[in-house]
Simulated assay, not measured.
Amino acid sequence: MIERLWAAEVPQHPRQALYTYAARLRQALDVGGSRTRDSPLVRRPGGYLFDIERDSVDLFRFRNLSRSAKSAAYRGDNTMAVHLFDDALALWHGDPLSDLDRGWAEGARISIRREYRAVIVGRAEASLCVGRHEEHLPALHQLAADYPEDERIAGLLMLSLYRSGRQGEALACFSNIRSRLIRQLGDEPGSMLQILHSQVLRRDPGLSHIDGLPVAN
């Protein structure tokens, strides 16, 4: 625990510093100042434990809602899936653990960002299935900027743009990812994305059907 907190910058008396931090944290958690119940921060062999209900932690609620949303989408109830995905995203407030710069915190951030990306993608897919193709465009644009070589994200963005009457932007999206893949990996986009590009180019009527998602997986 000391290594996680301070890494190579361990104070002169690390155990005493740790006890001081724990005491301050207990005071901060005692919001009402009543001390009518035990602190949720308890000692355990080798460290401390937050003894709290899982539903009081945003990350756990985010994960539960995400699982429920994916189950709803699997059952074909995409309206409910969109609602649950929205509830999950409402719990997201900036980059997780942004005030910590230790290696373990960065590892946790990467993992949680991956979960966030999956929720954005799932929400976009469910929205497309119920004809709500414009409202998730800002989030997809941001994901495409953050993950410029992700063909699944590019496909969802292309389809959403096309269904929003923005064929030119959909074609530009394909051109951007194709150029990047050729430049970075020396390879063309996958067959699914190329098929979608061809469909957008010829204004395939099938792209307007909301009962399917002809995009790369």
Results as ranks from 00 to 15, higher is better:
28 A>I: 12
33 G>L: 04
23 A>P: 00
41 L>N: 03
37 R>H: 13
29 L>T: 06
32 G>K: 10
45 P>S: 11
27 Q>R: 15
34 S>E: 14
50 F>C: 05
42 V>G: 02
38 D>H: 12
45 P>N: 07
34 S>K: 11
25 L>K: 05
30 D>R: 05
31 V>G: 00
23 A>F: 10
30 D>N: 15
51 D>M: 08
51 D>N: 15
40 P>N: 12
30 D>I: 00
37 R>I: 13
56 S>P: 02
40 P>G: 05
25 L>M: 10
50 F>S: 13
43 R>H: 11
57 V>Q: 13
56 S>N: 07
39 S>C: 05
38 D>E: 15
38 D>L: 09
44 R>C: 04
29 L>Y: 10
39 S>A: 06
55 D>M: 04
51 D>I: 01
31 V>I: 11
34 S>Y: 08
27 Q>P: 03
31 V>T: 11
56 S>A: 15
32 G>P: 01
24 R>W: 09
34 S>V: 03
31 V>D: 01
45 P>V: 06
38 D>G: 10
28 A>L: 13
57 V>P: 00
37 R>P: 00
44 R>I: 11
25 L>C: 09
35 R>G: 07
26 R>V: 04
55 D>R: 14
36 T>M: 07
39 S>W: 06
57 V>K: 07
36 T>P: 00
53 E>T: 09
38 D>P: 02
41 L>A: 08
28 A>W: 02
47 G>T: 00
51 D>A: 15
22 A>G: 02
30 D>C: 01
23 A>S: 14
36 T>F: 10
28 A>S: 08
23 A>M: 06
27 Q>T: 14
22 A>R: 07
27 Q>C: 04
48 Y>L: 12
46 G>W: 03
23 A>H: 11
35 R>M: 04
41 L>M: 05
